[in-house]
């Protein structure tokens, strides 16, 4: 598994929490497209729409139901950037790695987030609190380097600011 985390403790995957209702919805969609050529992509898109991401459990469901190898689904899921293997966190951290931010040291900011959270690009902490993404220009180059947590924008960041930002949301989570 791609685990680029540099966290102090090893984090486990986010437990799958699909509901029976979600399952029914996906099965209905698959059965509605049974036998159609080229229906794998629409099925995977629908699955992601329902679950928000494509974990093993969902890929297995698709594989078993469509009678195709899971590898086929996984290959497609890892080829297209539109598909996510991990869910998004309650707090979605995205660090701008656009040109202006990058030359102002955004790479180090990103690495610090990754290190403290113990997750890599596109991954989510096992408690479901934080997910991490790198993004391109958010249009606030004057504030470079910039990171966003959900809607909140943090500008002119230094590596030392990162822990404080995360602490703020962790406290929120405890409320």
């Amino acid at each position: 598994m791609s685990n680029k985390s540099m966290g102090l403790e090893e984090r486990k995957e986010v437990p799958f929490q699909g509901t029976e209702q979600q399952r029914e919805e996906l099965l209905g969609f698959i059965h509605g497209h049974a036998g159609q050529k080229g229906c794998l992509m629409p099925v995977m898109q629908k699955a992601q729409e329902i679950y928000g991401y494509l974990p093993q459990e969902v890929q297995k469901l698709i594989a078993d139901e469509m009678g195709i190898p899971m590898e086929k689904i996984y290959g497609v899921a890892t080829f297209y950037s539109q598909f996510h293997l991990a869910p998004k966190g309650k707090y979605q951290v995205s660090v701008c790695l656009g040109t202006a931010c990058y030359v102002k040291g955004a790479g180090n900011i990103y690495n610090k987030f990754s290190e403290l959270l113990g997750i890599g690009e596109g991954e989510c902490t096992s408690d479901g609190m934080f997910s991490l993404d790198a993004c391109r220009c958010v249009g606030a180059c004057g504030l470079a380097p910039v990171a966003m947590v959900n809607g909140d924008v943090y500008g002119r960041l230094t590596v030392d600011d990162v822990r404080g930002i995360l602490d703020k949301y962790m406290k929120d989570g405890e409320d």
Binding site: Q59, P69, E71, K72, Y74, L85
Partner: peptide, 24 residues
């Protein structure tokens, strides 16, 4: 996949990161 009809290996990821392997 085609001769044995099994398909437990395939190409994962894309570009330079492409590798042959199994799901997850």
């Amino acid at each position: 996949e085609k001769i044995q009809g099994i398909g437990v290996i395939g190409a994962n990821n894309r570009g330079f990161a492409t590798s042959i392997g199994s799901p997850f």
